[in-house]
Design a protein around this nucleic acid. Structure first.
Length: 107
DNA sequence: ACCCTGACCGCGT
DNA sequence: AACGCGGCCAGGG
């Protein structure tokens, strides 16, 4: 993973460092990686590079604490993965970010 | 009209 | 054929 762009490398590193039982948001990761408006790029990286770089993709949610993924199969996998780490969901499948958001430095 | 968010999608390597 | 890049910009509040 040497020839990757700096932003891409940062995003991968940040995601790899999210501890179990914690989550980060797309925008938060983009900000930390140095490109505040590039949440969409984070989505892209998550979507296409999770397996190769062994990313805990299930620990990334949207800014409201919801699962961003639409496909039912992976949607359920994500919820189950997080629940197995102790993350609790409300009945409308939402996470309390105050409780579970991981903030490495500060935003 | 402005600010924030986003599991995109088509192309080049 | 597969993989990484774009670092914007469309859509909603």
């Amino acid at each position: 993973m040497k020839s990757l762009q700096p932003f891409t490398k940062q995003v991968i590193r940040i995601i790899q460092n999210i501890p179990p039982g914690k989550v980060m948001t797309y925008g938060q990761i983009a900000r930390l990686a140095g490109s505040p408006r590039s949440a969409r790029q984070v989505v892209r990286i998550l979507h296409s590079m999770s397996e190769k770089h062994n990313l805990p993709w299930h620990r990334v949610v949207n800014s409201k604490g919801e699962i961003g993924i639409k496909e039912e199969e992976f949607f359920l996998v994500q919820i189950m993965s997080l629940e197995s780490e102790g993350v609790e969901f409300s009945k409308n499948n939402k996470i309390d970010l105050e409780l579970y958001q991981f903030t490495p430095f500060y935003n």
